[in-house]
Design a protein around this nucleic acid. Structure first.
Length: 236
DNA sequence: AATGGGACCAACCGCCGACAG
DNA sequence: CCTGTCGGCGGTTGGTCCCAT
């Protein structure tokens, strides 16, 4: 742990490295009395020898009230996968859909589970072909269920995050607030896993996103994704 | 028991946009 | 309009833990 350990930035004198409980206490007290923001003032007000950036990061990722310390649930993982297909590496945007989760946490999760997977093009195509066949077969069975969720398969394709509310939550096409959906994550999970057309289209979108980003994005193998979801969100 | 690798996590870095002076 | 500062974001790094071999 010598990378940051008690090392001071030579130019500005900011301490780096892991935070101590005393430093956390000072930061919590500062935010409690001054609110979030004005991070550059933290060192002046509290005597904390940390940069504003470091203070903000510590607060947002670790100290902020309401943060979930538990592991991501399969439902949350499913939401992340699906939102990543729509939003790409917009971790902060994805995090807004998952109360109590930070962009850093989601980013770490994605990187750990999917970033390393370089999709093989041939395998990818083959899996898509097989998947399409399966979907045609399953379509009849799912029609009734899907109709209860949305009016047409295209409805899901057209989920369009137009803007955000004052609460910072996105609004989707039909003016429903997504938080209402993720308040019931079981519903949300069923929603996104039940509609195979939706997934198929999202993967196509993901391909586009990856291509547009010059291949530097965190695209995952679609086959792995569907396998993952069909396992109920557990890695094999 | 030793070790190698993957998962997880905390934290830093660099870049960018907004905004005030 | 220009410039400096600040906050936010995505990318990256490296330590720790756990498990399989």
């Amino acid at each position: 742990m010598e990378r940051w350990g008690a090392v001071c930035d030579e130019e500005k004198g900011w301490k780096k490295g892991p935070w101590t409980p005393q430093e956390d206490k000072l930061l919590i007290e500062y935010v409690g009395s001054n609110g979030e923001g004005r991070w550059s003032s933290v060192s002046i007000s509290t005597g904390l020898n940390r940069s504003g950036k470091s203070c903000r990061l510590r607060w947002v990722n670790y100290l902020r009230p309401g943060l979930k310390k538990s592991h991501l649930t399969p439902q949350e993982e499913g939401i992340i996968i699906q939102l990543h297909a729509v939003l790409g590496n917009k971790w902060s945007a994805i995090a807004r859909y998952l109360p109590g989760r930070t962009d850093n946490e989601i980013k770490n999760y994605w990187r750990t589970h999917f970033k390393k997977r370089k999709p093989n093009c041939e395998t990818k195509k083959e899996k898509r072909r097989i998947l399409r066949q399966k979907l045609v077969h399953r379509e009849q069975e799912q029609t009734n269920y899907s109709n209860n969720i949305h009016e047409s398969p295209q409805a899901c394709d057209e989920i369009n995050i137009k803007k955000e509310t004052d609460m910072g939550y996105p609004i989707v096409e039909n003016n429903q607030f997504l938080p209402m959906m993720y308040q019931d994550t079981e519903f949300w999970f069923d929603f996104i896993t039940a509609d195979s057309y939706f997934w198929d289209e999202l993967w196509g979108l993901d391909d586009v996103i990856v291509q547009n980003r010059g291949g530097t994005g965190g695209g995952c193998c679609e086959g792995d994704t569907i396998d993952y979801v069909q396992r109920g969100g557990y890695m094999s």
